[in-house]
């Protein structure tokens, strides 16, 4: 419970301080920050990764301790010359697809990726079917000669409407 509260406090602080804390933190936690190229890649990669403690924060923005450890790992992998894909695979192998903010397209995520489109297609098909059925239900009105004559008489009796002032 204490750990959870601490986590929540860190998350809240990070949110409140926003970019300020992020930049301050990046300065504090990077003893190996001599290489700006490495740091730029670290930020680019960790923006795409989820911090597992503060689940709605990226690895780049989180002040959680695990995030700090993981940034250290990512930095080391960058320095070892690993590609972005290799680094992401490294984290996915340990923490699962959940660390990726962009889930991969594979059979288990088909529902996630294509579900909304399937739902939309289903709704459109339902709407079309409904409209067709309704159109076939509406009977065209048949006017007998007598009805037509009386309607015309009524129209002739009605004084023309005054035109709109506009």
């Amino acid at each position: 419970m204490k750990a959870l509260r601490r986590t929540l406090t860190t998350c809240a602080t990070a949110l409140l301080l926003g970019p300020l804390s992020l930049s301050a933190h990046a300065g504090e936690a990077t003893p190996m920050a001599d290489n700006p190229v490495v740091e730029a890649r670290l930020i680019a990669i960790s923006e795409e990764l989820r911090c597992l403690v503060c689940q709605n924060e990226s690895l780049a923005g989180s002040r959680a301790e695990l995030a700090e450890d993981l940034r250290r790992e990512v930095r080391k992998l960058i320095q070892d010359g690993k590609s972005d894909t290799e680094i992401k695979d490294y984290l996915v192998a340990r923490y699962g697809d959940f660390v990726l903010y962009r889930p991969p397209v594979k059979p288990t995520t088909w529902l996630l990726w294509f579900g909304p489109f399937a739902l939309l297609a289903g709704a459109v098909a339902g709407l079309v079917a409904y409209l067709r059925r309704r159109a076939s239900r509406v009977q065209p009105a048949h006017l007998s000669a007598a009805d037509k004559a009386s309607a015309e008489a009524l129209l002739a009796d009605t004084p023309p409407r005054p035109k709109d002032p506009a």
């Binding site: 750990a3 597992l52 403690v53 695990l66 450890d69 993981l70 790992e73 340990r94 923490y95 699962g96």
Partner: peptide
């Protein structure tokens, strides 16, 4: 001590 093995095991909450 440094949590390296923890990372290999995907530990994120003790």
């Amino acid at each position: 001590m440094d949590g390296r093995v923890g990372i290999d095991y995907g530990v994120y909450g003790v």
